[in-house]
Computed example of a mutant assay.
Amino acid sequence: MWRRSLRAARRCLGCRSPGPQGMCSSHAVRTCSAPALPAGRITALQAVELWRRHFEERGVTEPHLSSQYIVAHLLRAKTIQSLDQERLTEFLSREETEQVWKLCTRRLSRMPVQYVIEEWDFRELTLKMRPPVFIPRPETEELVELVLADLQRKSGAADAQHTCLEVGCGSGAISLSLLKSLPQLKAVALDQSQAAVDLTTENALRLRLQDRLQIHHVDVMTDPEAVLSLCGPVSLLVSNPPYLFSEDMASLEPEVSRFEDHAALDGGEDGLNVIKHILTLAPQILSDHGRVYMEVDPRHPPLIRRWVEVNVEELQYVETRLDITGRPRFCILQKATAETGPQAGSGLRN
């Protein structure tokens, strides 16, 4: 559970209160005041406690979990709790101690743990992570589970052929998780960031899912024609787009503002810049009855519904789903046909 807690701590798209800005420059990790390497030998548990105290003194969020997770990773474990007591109480080698100091000093600069250890779990997958590619949050796991549940409710969905388009793939978390769960699925993933495209490609290869995934470097905002040329009719369009209101960017925690790609966060004045482009293109990309599944700011669902009713008559707003904390987080829309008509739905469901 502590790993889930740490993952939630990296979530800054729903909680925008300014955090402590820390003591270190965003570009100079080595200038951070790290404790000196111990003269003698120390155990893993002693290293965890020493760094917990130092993180706490320097205002690093979740200091205990941060130190636990870094030391566990160094010892090739997912969690401290999964290591036996003998391993935790034996002395670290000099090389191991130096590596702990190196990684923890990065965390001291407010670098997210996911970047420090260069990997993170998303549902059943372990994905490589590196800055500035957007780190997937727990809400996005819920988005994937929502899509899977909807597909499974359809008759024969387990064996049906589906094609998915993901706009803004980041590390590839959504597409790769869907591909892992649905052996018949094929996917196309797009991102405006070459770093994201490269990381998604790397993760697909590591997970041996590359044969069912096409990955393209294209910006839905500036090159919609390229998007249309790359994507034939798809059964579903899934996106966790940039949706922060621009005014909220100034209050992000240092972990986010210093290290993650601002283009993957800032959705413009009302947070809808990219969302509107996606929804405008959706009817031209979706097959009949194809659906859009989108993670958004809790303030967005009524705004999106009204905007679609006025501007995209080929889309029907189906419903809003709540996230695990009870906030309206997910929008579901469907390509309207002569049978369904353009009238929006009004459902709000958990």
Rank of each mutant, 00 (worst) to 15 (best):
E141Q: 06
E202G: 01
K154H: 13
C169A: 15
E141G: 11
A189C: 01
P136A: 10
E139S: 11
S181D: 08
A173V: 10
M129R: 09
P233H: 02
C164E: 00
E142H: 10
L127H: 01
L182F: 00
G232E: 03
S155A: 14
L230H: 08
L199V: 07
E142T: 10
P233K: 12
D198S: 08
E124R: 05
R208V: 02
G168I: 01
V220S: 08
P131T: 01
P224H: 06
E166S: 06
I174K: 04
E225N: 14
K180P: 00
R137P: 09
P138G: 08
P136T: 07
L148Y: 07
I135H: 09
C231S: 15
S193G: 10
R206Q: 14
A158V: 14
G168Q: 02
R208F: 09
R153V: 02
G170Q: 07
A173T: 13
G232Q: 05
R212P: 10
T222F: 08
N203T: 03
E166A: 02
A158F: 14
S175E: 03
A173P: 10
P224F: 01
T222S: 15
L185Q: 00
V147M: 05
Q184E: 12
L125D: 04
C164A: 13
A158I: 14
F134N: 05
V133S: 10
V218Y: 02
L165C: 10
S229T: 15
H217G: 12
D121N: 13
V167W: 05
E202S: 14
D198P: 04
H216Q: 11
L143V: 09
V144P: 06
E225D: 15
R212L: 00
V116T: 06
A189I: 01
R208L: 11
L176V: 13
V116R: 05
P131S: 12
A204V: 03
L165M: 06
V218S: 13
R208D: 13
E141L: 08
I215N: 12
T201V: 02
I135W: 08
D223G: 02
S177H: 03
T126G: 07
L151E: 15
P138A: 11
Q194W: 10
H216L: 12
R153C: 08
I174W: 03
A157D: 12
Q152I: 04
T200N: 02
A226G: 14
E124W: 04
L143K: 06
G170E: 11
R212Q: 07
D121M: 08
H216A: 14
C164Q: 01
R130C: 09
V116H: 06
